[in-house]
Simulated assay, not measured.
Amino acid sequence: MKKYISLFVIAGIVHSLFSLYWGFGGEAGLTTVGTWVFTLSANYGIWINIALLIVAVVKFLATIMPLTLTNHFDKRIYYVSLVGSVVLILYGGLNTLIGWLKMFKIIEIHNYYTAFGQAFVWDPLFLLWGIGLFGYVKMLKKSKRNNVV
């Protein structure tokens, strides 16, 4: 179970920290997200920073809340985590695949850095986050069923 915890916690925390960094005005790595970020920032200024800070908090909570299941099994947190893991797997998996198709020039690339981030950084992290979370909640449910923690 520890490998699943490590996988989803690391992926979720990395996502959270970058959103926090960007929310405080950092720009490193933003080109790998997309040029639309710069357009939004130019149009809405501080509101985008506030939104990114909120996103960072939500990502962080979504990462740590499932860890409470280890000590106290809560069906609501379990099912939200399970659904969240499936969404992360589908979203991250599909976008990673699309990113790879762009990198292999099967699909047209509009921005190399964005396609690179999609194929090799952000969406694979979403995928790993989802896989780790899914494995964790399924193993936790199985261990609870067998009264083993």
Rank of each mutant, 00 (worst) to 15 (best):
G29L: 10
G25S: 05
W36A: 10
E27I: 06
A28M: 14
G26E: 10
A28V: 13
W36H: 09
L17V: 15
E27G: 03
F18T: 04
W22R: 00
N49T: 08
L30P: 04
G29Q: 08
W22F: 05
W22N: 00
N49G: 14
L17Y: 05
N43T: 06
S41F: 07
N43R: 10
V37E: 05
T31K: 08
A42W: 00
A42F: 12
Y21M: 03
N49F: 03
V33M: 10
S16R: 11
H15F: 05
T31H: 07
L20A: 08
T32Q: 08
I48F: 12
F38G: 13
T31C: 03
L40W: 09
A28N: 13
N43P: 02
W36V: 12
V33A: 12
G23E: 06
N43D: 10
Y21D: 00
T32A: 11
Y44Q: 12
A28R: 13
G29W: 06
G29S: 11
G34R: 02
T39S: 11
G23L: 05
V37T: 11
T32G: 05
G34L: 12
S19N: 09
L40E: 04
T39H: 08
F18Q: 02
S16I: 07
W22C: 01
L17D: 08
W22E: 03
S19E: 04
T39C: 00
L20K: 01
E27P: 02
W47V: 06
G25P: 02
F24Q: 04
G29V: 05
G25L: 02
V37M: 10
A42P: 06
F38A: 12
G29H: 05
N49A: 03
T35E: 15
F24W: 05
T31L: 14
S19K: 01
F38P: 09
I48G: 06
N49W: 07
Y21S: 04
I48A: 02
H15R: 08
G26D: 13
T39V: 13
S19D: 10
T31D: 12
L20F: 06
S16C: 15
G23P: 06
T35A: 12
W36Y: 14
W22Q: 01
W36E: 10
L40H: 06
W36G: 09
F24G: 06
L40K: 11
S19L: 07
L20Y: 01
Y44I: 03
G45H: 03
G23K: 01
N43M: 08
G23R: 01
G34S: 12
N49R: 15
